[in-house]
């Protein structure tokens, strides 16, 4: 069996050089020796995002985005479907966790000064990810179509009306009408399961590319020299000679 799997791996490796990718990007990808637990929050967020996608798709199996059926379909998931309650609460609590960890991630980056040049773009894409996460939470909140979600959405969208001149039109654009109703549900559903997850996935890709490209920042405290060597004239990959490999050392760290 192992031999057969080895053959398959070899077949792919000969064609794509996968072994090289693994050695270079994982084991050969060195992190500063004084890297700390706060550096793992990004990975935590990635895991939560994947879980949200999976539980979200499971909820989509039974959820009906119609004002007469939405609440009943959610009740059906909660009471009739085996483990439906778990899946739905996983999705709902997961969204809160996502924002909580996002804020922790943001604060750790802020306090360790990792956002400083040359990593401004990392911060900027991360900030847009925070906005998108808030947007996907808001649009998801309406979907159960209960009293809480209806009034919360009424209040949240009404806030846009305080913008001078275009405020009223903007509220109507958001709601798809003058009041929260069937068109609001359709719009929010489309944003929640279509546009926003796609945008978040793309932006996560950009965010990860940037981190791979510049190398991981050095924490401002810990064991070694922590001065920032970057002078700003040209691009330099921040190497960490003598650092610990991402895989397996950091990946499997407690």
């Amino acid at each position: 069996m192992m031999e057969f799997l080895g053959k398959i791996y070899n077949w792919i490796d000969v064609r794509l050089g996968t072994h090289e990718i693994i050695t270079e990007k994982r084991t050969g990808y060195l992190l500063p020796r004084n890297v700390n637990a706060w550096y793992s929050l990004g990975s935590v967020l990635l895991v939560i995002f994947c879980l949200q996608i999976i539980t979200g798709m499971l909820l989509m199996l039974y959820y009906v985005p119609d004002i007469d059926k939405a609440f009943d379909s959610v009740s059906f998931i909660m009471t009739e479907i085996p483990l439906g309650r778990l899946v739905r609460l996983f999705h709902a609590v997961g969204s809160s966790m996502m924002l909580l960890v996002l804020l922790l991630h943001m604060f750790s980056i802020l306090f360790m000064g990792s956002y400083k040049s040359p990593r401004e773009l990392h911060w900027l894409t991360g900030f847009f990810l925070l906005l998108l996460a808030m947007g996907i939470s808001l649009t998801g909140y309406l979907l159960p179509w209960n009293q809480l979600s209806f009034w919360a959405t009424t209040v949240a969208t009404d806030c846009a009306s305080s913008i001078p001149f275009i405020g009223e039109n903007l509220v109507e654009l958001l709601r798809g009408g003058k009041q929260v109703g069937i068109h609001t549900l359709g719009r929010f559903y489309t944003l929640h399961v279509g546009l926003l997850p796609a945008l978040i996935a793309v932006l996560i890709g950009v965010h990860l590319f940037l981190i791979q490209r510049t190398g991981v920042s050095t924490p401002p405290f810990g064991l070694e020299d922590t001065s920032n060597q970057w002078k700003g004239e040209s691009f330099v990959y921040e190497e960490h000679p003598g650092g610990i490999p991402f895989f397996p050392n950091f990946f499997l760290q407690k």
Partner: peptide
């Protein structure tokens, strides 16, 4: 109008 002038609830 039944729309509350505070934040738009009915």
């Amino acid at each position: 109008s039944a729309v509350c002038p505070h934040l738009g609830c009915i």
